[in-house]
Design a protein around this nucleic acid. Structure first.
Lengths: 209, 209
DNA sequence: CATAAAGTCAAGCCATCGCTTGATTTACTA
DNA sequence: TAGTAAATCAAGCGATGGCTTGACTTTATG
């Protein structure tokens, strides 16, 4: 009979290896995208053998898909939490601040959080597999945004609001990926918010006075 | 003594090969970025031999740099022409329409023009070499935008206007690269302008009423 | 026509890629 | 202590990448 011990050092080591591989993959995905990731660079960063990827994940692609799905879910959760924390009478600036909140916090935190943000931004350009499981969350997030956005942008039909939301999301993704992102990451959080929120709000609201 | 003839069939053929390679490279750069371009795929598309790239450009990287620099220059020229065509009392919507004009026209035209736009967008994320020669044009373009933008966005200092301009440019680049771009390319030009210009103008203007 | 220049081509070199294999180490079980 | 499952490792395989080579074709010159 096989007894279950509280700590099995072998399995713990395996989990550490998996985590190391996944976070090394995430960093490389964030800074070079899906094409720029190589097996050996991941394993070097994680201090693991090349065969570890096949052993633990099956293939390099499966490892990347896992890392991407994890990042996307983490981002969508943060996004929904920010929107849902808004009261029913939130102003346009508050909506914009909540919408951009996860990214601004990622800039402030740096490290893995920023890598998550950048990876999510990249898959906005090159969509991978693994969307299926998160489609529901994605659409719920969009409905939430439209619900709090609508009352603040009167006279604009829903189709156009969806377009503006996608524009605003794209703008944030761009800031995360482009070189300007490293400048923004160096800014004090409060300063970044003061610069960024009006732009996002303006994109929602439209320009014609 | 070597005489110079008006038409030298050998050199003409060589020029055709160079052009074919450059335009094949541009298309691949537009749709897959610098990492996703392979020598053999370029030469297959251009109907040339693999050695042609080394012979005419020196290396794959040199070919890509040439194609990128060409695209960037083409875009900056179009951008400056659009801004310079504005009168001294242009409205914010007119400025936004001129700012987004090259991209909207590229969507309408498709083909090589769209490839130029997408390549320019990509190098906004992964800057290559060859910037040096175009830095002047790039900064002149930015000054032009600020000049026509300033009077329309009172009470906002220049640093912030620069930030908003970069946001607006990033937004356009994103639309060119993301899957939403293919949806936009299918839209009637007039409809795209009606949707997009308010968003760009709003980003310039800021959101707080 | 002979020569030389410009261009094209098939073939192959070498590095790197993802992935597999069979042996080996490690930590737990009976 | 012997046995076993989990994990790790060095080595290498086949495919593909960029680039070079030396022969060949085409075209202009004298």
């Amino acid at each position: 009979m096989i007894r279950v011990k509280k700590t099995d050092l072998r399995r713990e080591a395996g989990q550490r290896t998996r985590d190391g591989l996944q976070s090394a993959a995430l960093e490389l995905l964030a800074q070079r995208g899906q094409e720029g990731v190589t097996l050996r660079e991941i394993t070097d960063r994680a201090g693991a053998n090349v065969a570890a990827v096949s052993y633990h994940f099956g293939s390099l692609k499966a490892l990347c898909d896992t890392a991407i799905e994890h990042a996307l879910e983490q981002y969508l959760d943060a996004q929904m939490a920010a929107i849902d924390s808004l009261g029913p009478a939130a102003t346009l600036d508050e909506v914009a601040a909540a919408f951009a909140g996860p990214m601004m916090r990622a800039f402030a935190a740096g490290g893995q959080d920023l890598a998550v943000m950048r990876t999510v931004a990249r898959i906005g350009i090159e969509p991978p597999q693994g969307w299926e499981r998160l489609t529901g969350k994605f659409e719920k997030s969009r409905r939430d945004v439209l619900r709090v956005l609508g009352p603040n942008v009167p006279g604009v039909d829903e189709e156009e609001l969806i377009f503006r939301t996608r524009c605003a999301a794209g703008l944030l993704n761009w800031l995360a990926l482009a070189p300007i992102g490293t400048e923004l990451a160096a800014l004090p959080a409060e300063r970044l918010e003061r610069q960024l929120v009006p732009v996002v709000a303006g994109a929602f609201r439209g320009g014609a006075g």
